[in-house]
């Protein structure tokens, strides 16, 4: 039913992504669909990487790890942005289009009052792309 799964990952908070990653891997095996892990990095040095190239390499290693841990087919896509805190939605939409994903599996933060000001990324992607969105809490 699904041909390509997309999983946005924040490499600074991998420890909080366990459930979403497991869900994505289970779905991937069930539908025999490859998973594409997407990361967005600032161009300036960040805690994860000194530059976008190092980030891409770390993301690739992360993808390899997921592939071997879960026995799935995995690719990675890394994007760099000048203002990643704001450009996440736009970049994820681009990633959905470029990877041809029809299902996005992503971890969610606990919703709170700030969601009225900053709507969730998952909600935005569901609204603005053709892919199904699975928000894991």
């Amino acid at each position: 039913m699904y041909k390509q799964i997309l999983v946005p990952v924040d490499l600074t908070h991998v420890d909080q992504l366990g459930k979403a990653l497991q869900t994505a891997a289970d779905l991937a095996r069930h539908y025999d669909a490859p998973v594409c892990y997407v990361g967005i990095t600032p161009e300036a040095p960040s805690p994860v990487a000194h530059n976008p190239k190092e980030f891409a390499r770390k993301l690739e290693a992360f993808g390899n790890q997921q592939a071997s841990d879960h026995g799935i087919k995995a690719t990675t896509r890394s994007y760099s942005a000048t203002d990643p805190a704001i450009d996440i939605n736009k970049t994820l939409k681009k990633a959905v289009e470029e990877s041809g994903a029809d299902l996005v599996v992503m971890a969610s933060h606990m919703p709170n009052v700030t969601d009225y000001i900053w709507p969730s990324h998952g909600g935005w992607i569901a609204e603005h792309s053709s892919a199904s969105v699975f928000v894991v809490r």
């Binding site: 530059n51 976008p52 190239k53 993301l59 993808g63 390899n64 071997s68 995995a74 890394s78």
Partner: peptide, 27 residues
């Protein structure tokens, strides 16, 4: 800017990123 990598589900092929030198940014 985008970079795409095809990863194989082959555990032996993994590179250890932490042991490598810092990569240069672009060039």
């Amino acid at each position: 800017m985008t970079s795409e990598n095809e990863n194989k589900p082959d555990p032996g092929a993994d590179a250890e990123p932490d042991t490598e030198a810092l990569p240069e940014p672009e060039g």
